[in-house]
Each structure stands twice: as C-alpha cells, then as structure tokens.
Lab assay of single mutants.
Amino acid sequence: MQVTWGNVTVTFSNPEEAKKYAEKVARKLGGQVELHNGQFRIK
C-alpha cells in the first residue's frame, strides 16, 4: 500500500501502518487523506 503526496511516495507492506502514517503526514501538512485506487493520497 502506498502513501503519496506531492512527488513523494512511501510504500508499506502493512495497510494499517500506511493509514497511520498517512494520517500523521496529513496532520502535519494540514491536508486530507483520500483512499484512491489502493493508495492513500494527501491533498
């Protein structure tokens, strides 16, 4: 499962870890987490 924002992509084998990481990054950037085609995207 991947977490992407800007031109950065981070890949996780565990979807739960990916979700936690995406939420943490979104909080830092003041963005929203979207699940899109099996990727968490931060907008």
Rank of each mutant, 00 (worst) to 15 (best):
M1C: 15
M1A: 10
Q2I: 13
V3M: 03
V3I: 04
V3K: 01
T4G: 04
T4R: 12
W5S: 02
W5P: 00
W5H: 07
W5K: 01
W5I: 10
G6R: 07
G6W: 12
G6K: 06
G6C: 15
G6D: 13
N7I: 08
N7M: 08
N7P: 08
N7W: 08
V8S: 06
V8H: 12
T9M: 07
T9H: 05
V10E: 04
V10F: 09
V10I: 14
V10K: 11
V10N: 03
V10P: 00
T11F: 14
T11Q: 09
T11K: 09
F12E: 00
F12C: 09
F12G: 00
F12Y: 03
F12H: 01
F12Q: 00
F12V: 02
S13I: 09
S13M: 10
S13V: 09
S13T: 13
N14I: 06
N14P: 02
N14H: 08
N14S: 13
P15Y: 15
P15E: 09
P15D: 05
P15H: 13
E16D: 12
E16N: 10
E16F: 11
E16A: 12
E17I: 11
E17R: 10
A18M: 02
A18P: 00
K19A: 09
K19Q: 10
K19M: 11
K19T: 04
K20A: 14
K20T: 10
Y21M: 04
Y21W: 09
Y21V: 04
E23N: 08
E23V: 08
E23Q: 10
K24V: 10
K24R: 13
K24S: 12
V25L: 14
V25H: 02
V25P: 00
V25K: 04
V25I: 14
V25G: 00
A26C: 06
A26N: 02
A26M: 03
A26D: 00
A26P: 00
A26L: 03
R27E: 10
R27M: 10
R27K: 13
R27I: 09
R27V: 08
K28D: 09
K28W: 15
K28A: 14
K28N: 07
L29C: 13
G30H: 09
G30N: 10
G30Y: 05
G30V: 04
G30S: 06
G31C: 12
G31Y: 06
G31W: 08
Q32N: 08
Q32L: 12
V33P: 03
V33Q: 01
V33A: 05
E34F: 10
E34R: 05
E34K: 04
E34Y: 12
E34D: 06
E34A: 05
L35N: 06
L35V: 13
L35M: 13
L35Q: 07
L35D: 05
L35G: 04
L35S: 06
H36T: 10
H36F: 12
H36W: 13
H36M: 11
H36Y: 12
H36D: 09
H36P: 00
N37Y: 04
N37H: 07
N37Q: 07
N37E: 10
G38K: 05
G38P: 01
G38M: 04
G38F: 05
G38T: 03
G38Q: 04
Q39N: 12
Q39H: 13
Q39K: 08
Q39E: 12
F40V: 04
F40S: 00
R41L: 15
R41S: 06
R41F: 15
R41A: 06
R41E: 07
I42W: 03
I42N: 01
I42Y: 02
I42C: 05
I42M: 01
K43R: 14
K43D: 05
K43M: 13
K43E: 07
